[in-house]
Design a protein around this nucleic acid. Structure first.
Lengths: 136, 136
DNA sequence: GCGTGATTACTCGGATACAAGATGTCCGAGTTTGAGCGG
DNA sequence: CCGCTCAAACTCGGACATCTTGTATCCGAGTAATCACGC
């Protein structure tokens, strides 16, 4: 099990959008160029972020993507859930519900990671990178 | 990202082997029957556990699989590493090494889960299930 | 009784088939802005 | 100046194509115990 590339893109995308939050809408093309990804593919990922209410999109000329949620509040977990989907990492195939003791332990472990990532905000990274003048 | 079925099987397999540790070697066929999995497939998983030095296999008549590592010491993480492979869950595709701040945070989160699972031993589950007379 | 060989009960590993999910492309359709043009 | 149309600049979503990985099967080979048989 690995995090998908989509998650990798999405996280960097949000950081980039935080850095350029004052520049108004960012077009798909701009983002795709900057990250060197195909625009059509990137649009799929951004759509996921839109559905998760992290960003919003406006179509038509001068349209594009912009943050929707308050930038200081966007956590790693927000983004990960959007791209990886909700649902536990481990599911016992032998017993239904939470009867499986192994599954309970695994869930506890996942929970640990999850709360950590729910507290960590992407804003922190963006701040630092703005200071350094870095782009991603 | 999800844990694979193989991990699910492997964890239950180890618990079962702890419960039946006194019965000598457990044949592939016995295990496959009990968990209702094809023997050939299960053998692949067990081979991974052998390579991770968690269990040992003896071929020939009366052969089979038995625990190698001290049963009280086998952690969830031992098994997971064996089946899922080592290596981080998240790898930044833009920057090499640990230059990516996002990756560092993700690694920290993973580390949290990992240490938890390294402390948790499968022996605990086996003990409880022996008490209940359960099989998995 | 004692070697020797065959049989039986096992695991090992490569090759391969199959399924699912991640990755990526194509294209047609909808939406908003703004420029151009005629009245 | 107003209103109309039209093109340009955008995003949206479905349908695919492709690649990778997990899941699973088949089969031939190797290994160890045990049984049978002949001496």
């Amino acid at each position: 099990m690995k995090y998908t590339k989509a998650t990798n893109y999405a996280l960097h995308m949000i950081v980039y959008m935080i850095e350029h939050a004052q520049s108004g809408n960012l077009s798909l093309h701009t983002l795709a160029d900057h990250f060197n990804v195909s625009a059509t593919y990137l649009s799929k990922i951004l759509t996921q972020l839109v559905k998760a209410d992290l960003i919003e999109s406006t179509s038509g000329a001068n349209g594009g993507y912009a943050l929707r949620k308050k930038m200081e509040d966007i956590s790693y977990m927000d983004v990960i859930k959007a791209t990886e989907g909700t649902g536990s990492l481990f599911e016992c195939k032998f017993q239904e519900g939470s009867k499986c003791l192994i599954q309970n332990v695994m869930a506890e472990a996942e929970n640990l990671m999850e709360t950590y990532l729910r507290d960590k905000k992407l804003y922190e990274v963006a701040k630092i990178q703005i200071g350094k003048g870095k782009s991603f």
